[in-house]
Design a protein around this nucleic acid. Structure first.
Length: 548
RNA sequence: GCGGGUGUAGCUCAGUGGUAGAGCGUCACGUUGCCAACGUGAAUGUCGUGAGUUCGAAUCUCAUCACCCGCUCCA
């Protein structure tokens, strides 16, 4: 990212370069690399003293607004929401039922010449739709009559083919390759090869040794056997390490909620519509962890599974989509950097094709700009998960939810707002980062006061004349309710500057007037303005500005 | 996984084969009278890591790790 910031220091992007944000996060103790003294580990990040407060504030704001005080739904009734906290390691059958074991092990094929990797089940689609050299080859056969013309192939191999598919067997060694192909045609004159087989023949040099090969869509080289990438972390529960006790670290928190759905219904007096919320770690063996904490291998989710009557999916989907978008706005991500994006039908996941919709709430991170990156997804998952678990555990329709009012049984549909706590924290950091050449620190963190890691700082103007004693008394009082800091060292400007970089919204300074008239100055982070308020009014001031 | 780039103190960087440095920051003491002031002093380095070449390597070579960029991936 050093290129990004140095390339064009005048551009708006450079004003908010990721490099500078990362540097501040490190310098002030928001985020560090995991195991940094050993060189770090790709895809894992730690939160420092300020970072942990910020992330906790985000999770607590979410829990407060979602579980404790969720507001009214589209039906005008108060929303019913309860929380759970499920384990990271679950019975492996959970992941078979959810489809993760199958879909998280997408077999990949790699080109032995150029190293290009393609999903094995997509390779023919890629070859037929996005392959430049195959397009070029097929143009040679525009007037293709059904007869395979070795002369045509040879001419292409020695001309265009050399540039477009240098590693294709036909290009490297056309004589041998065409020998195998003509043998095939002569052996079975009544069964000419179809397009797929033809493409495999021209990709094959050592037919006797290797059998038919599949060519690389980029360079024509041979693609390797498909091998599975394990996208779920694996471990073993028990001392021996065998297939029998293999377990997975959960790749999402949602499945804990689904598997406990029936216990919640039986014990919590909730009835549809209602929601179950959970905050917790999830793990994915991402191929390429990138962009600071944005795509990590260990991350934290804040998920709601909201259970509804199937016929009410559309209105609840719309409700959660708007509620969640507005929530992110309310904690300080207002403006052009936040957007709501409905998915096209084509990009929908398998469980959502027929649903009321899927959307992402996206933030314009410096590394995605001018594009956006996902903060939260809101998806109508229909009854896919509850049904899958009901079937997999062998109880099937017996696990349908009984709707007393309507006297009917059904599997509730699910609207799932699933947010990333680490991505949210990163967005808050990026949004807060505000360069300001007029202040000593050169930058300040403009956190919404509700999310700010430190709510207020208490400073004696000088470290004598009874000021420290007054400051300490105020500090002892305020810290019972808020995360506040006291600092008596060094000059006042330096202390303000430090608080600017920590994003502390208010500083209370005790000076000589305090000793006479029992007032303190309040210094506002964003405006640098100061006002005087009574020493006994400080707690009320914070309550009004921050809550709590 | 592929290709390109980067890696020296907390930060910004200097050091191109011969004693590892500066500024800022941090800490201590003094001072202080509202925005990184001043004075004195102090601490802080596996020169990303590991090998190799060399009498001698931060410097040259190779490997490796981490980060950044572009592909790829993103259920």
């Amino acid at each position: 990212m050093s290129n990004e910031s140095s390339a064009n220091p005048q551009s708006p992007a450079a004003m908010r370069s990721m490099d500078d944000i990362v540097a501040l996060c490190r310098r002030r103790g928001f985020i560090w690399q995991s195991s940094e003294i050993y060189g770090g580990i790709n895809g894992f990040w730690d939160y420092g003293p300020l970072g942990v407060e910020l992330k906790r504030n985000l999770k607590e704001a979410w829990w407060h607004d979602i579980v404790r005080c969720p507001g009214k739904g589209p039906d005008g009734n108060l929303i019913d929401m309860v929380g759970v906290d499920c384990t990271i390691i679950m019975n492996p059958k959970v992941w078979e039922a959810s489809g993760h074991v199958a879909s998280f092990a997408d077999p990949m094929s790699t080109c032995s010449k150029c190293g290009n990797s393609v999903r094995a089940d997509h390779i023919w689609e890629v070859l037929s739709t996005q392959c430049a050299w195959l397009d070029s080859l097929l143009q040679e056969f525009e007037h293709f009559t059904g007869r395979i013309d070795a002369g045509h192939l040879m001419r292409w191999a020695r001309g265009k083919g050399k540039h477009k598919a240098p590693n294709l067997a036909l290009v490297r060694n056309p004589e041998v390759t065409l020998t195998w192909l003509s043998e095939r045609i002569n052996d079975q004159p009544n069964n000419p090869p179809d397009m797929k087989e033809l493409v495999q023949y021209i990709a094959t040099e050592q037919f006797a040794a290797t059998g038919l090969q599949t060519p690389c869509p980029l360079c024509g080289g041979e693609m390797s056997e498909a091998r599975a990438f394990k996208l779920m972390f694996e471990s073993h529960a028990g001392l021996s390490q065998t297939e029998d006790n293999k377990v997975y670290l959960r790749p999402e928190t949602a499945q804990g909620i689904f598997t406990q759905f029936w216990n919640v219904v039986d014990t919590s007096r909730v009835k549809v519509p209602f929601g179950i919320a959970q905050v917790g770690k999830a793990f994915r063996n991402e191929v390429t962890p990138r962009h600071y904490t944005y795509r990590s291998r260990e991350f934290e989710q804040m998920e709601i599974e909201f259970f509804i009557r199937p016929d009410q999916a559309a209105e609840w989907y719309a409700y959660w989509r708007d509620a969640r978008y507005n929530w992110w706005k309310s904690i300080g991500l207002a403006g052009d950097n936040l957007q709501l994006r409905e998915h096209d039908r084509e990009e929908l996941a398998h469980y959502a094709k027929e649903g009321a919709g899927v959307c992402d709430i996206e933030y314009r991170f410096p590394f995605t700009a001018p594009g956006f990156g996902e903060l939260e997804g809101v998806a109508h998952r229909a009854d896919y998960d509850l049904k899958a678990h009901a079937t997999a555990c062998g109880k099937g329709d017996k696990l349908r939810y009984f709707d007393q009012e309507r006297n009917e049984r059904y599997f509730p549909h699910v609207i799932e707002p699933s947010a990333g706590a680490d991505r949210g924290t990163l967005a808050l950091l990026c949004e807060a980062y505000t360069p300001d050449s007029n202040r000593p620190s050169g930058v300040y963190m403009k956190f919404h006061p509700r999310l700010a890691p430190i709510k207020a700082a208490i400073f004696p103007l000088v470290n004598k004349d009874g000021m420290p004693e007054v400051a300490e008394k105020l500090y002892m009082q305020l810290r019972q309710k808020w995360n506040v800091q006291i600092d008596v060292k060094q000059n006042i400007g330096k202390r303000y500057a430090r608080m600017d970089e920590a994003g502390t919204p208010y500083c209370f300074t005790i000076d000589s007037d305090t000793l006479n008239d029992q007032t303190v100055t309040v210094r506002h982070r964003d405006t640098l303005q100061q006002e005087r308020i009574g020493l006994d009014k400080v707690a009320a001031f914070l309550s009004e500005k921050i809550g709590g």
